[in-house]
């Protein structure tokens, strides 16, 4: 395949199929699932994540296989104890290999997500909390081809968390209205469930309370062109009062992607959260 062919594909938006496979995971406050917990009034959390994806099974004659490394950087700020704003900027590097042997490396900045989260329900008991929040915002274009949808895409959703000392459960549902053209005209519905269980824990004089948690998630996605994805996502979290180190993998349980979208082979996730 020649460069001019690739340029034609770019014009047709087919490259976008590569990053369109994972955008809503990027601003999840947990590993892949959101949480209804929010920083305190005036509190700020920075999260730096690395997500490495491999995609294949190209239904088009291009025979694309892609390796993608995304670094979503998220800043969360608590305006009040129940109202939070957050922004995510994904730095993306992708390597696309075509059946013809052509390989194209690209680096860029994906669309910026700006969200507000309002916690409308909270029930606190000793060692237990249940919280429910509404999410709304948009994905703003950076116009950095091929990583930007070049459209403003509204996002709405809700997230629920039930947390106990030894385990907690989160679920979220998010809907993104894609207003762009081509592949970015299809809306996206995402639902996630995460269960965390404390394997080890203690209270150290040096770092305070800490815990090592096993996390298991189910991540489901439906795109209005008929594409569906279901992932099982095991992981580990090490949590201290100031920072959280977490790592996990997303493995496909079921995938049915409409052409020209690629299927995801796996996703490695590594994340560091720090609050100040």
């Amino acid at each position: 395949m020649t460069r001019s062919n690739i340029a034609t594909l770019l014009m047709a938006g087919l490259y976008l199929a590569i990053i369109a496979a994972y955008p809503t995971d990027l601003y999840a406050a947990g590993l892949n699932t959101d949480v209804a917990l929010t920083p305190p009034e005036g509190g700020t959390i920075i999260r730096v994540q690395s997500r490495y994806l491999e995609l294949s099974d190209d239904p088009t004659p291009m025979g694309r296989e892609a390796s993608v490394l995304v670094h979503p950087v998220t800043i969360v700020h608590g305006l009040t104890s129940d109202f939070t704003v957050l922004g995510t900027v994904p730095l993306v590097y992708q390597d696309v290999e075509f059946a013809s042997g052509t390989e194209v490396d690209e680096f860029g900045v994906g669309d910026v997500t700006l969200l507000a989260k309002y916690r409308f329900y909270q029930d606190d008991q000793p060692g237990i909390t249940t919280r429910w929040a509404a999410i709304g915002g948009l994905e703003a274009p950076t116009y950095d081809e091929p990583f930007s949808s070049e459209s403003v895409d509204p996002i709405i959703g809700t997230v629920w968390t039930h947390q106990r000392r030894d385990w907690w459960l989160d679920w979220d549902v998010l809907y993104k209205f894609n207003t762009g053209g081509g592949l970015d005209s299809d809306d996206e519905l995402r639902g996630d469930v995460a269960l965390s269980y404390r394997l080890l824990g203690g209270e150290s004089g040096a770092i305070g309370p800490w815990g090592l948690y096993a996390i298991g998630e189910i991540n489901a996605k439906y795109i209005t062109d008929g594409s569906t994805q279901l992932f099982g996502s095991p992981g580990l979290q090490f949590i201290t009062p100031r920072w959280i180190l977490e790592a996990g993998v997303q493995l496909p349980i079921h995938q049915h992607m409409k052409s020209p979208r690629l299927e995801t082979d796996f996703v490695f996730v590594f994340s560091l959260r720090f609050q100040f």
Binding site: E41, Q122, R165, G211
Partner: peptide, 18 residues
Amino acid sequence: VHVKGLACPFCTYNLEKR
């Protein structure tokens, strides 16, 4: 102070900060 809803280590810093 007894704090209801305090269930994870990461949350304790919220409290400390305030």
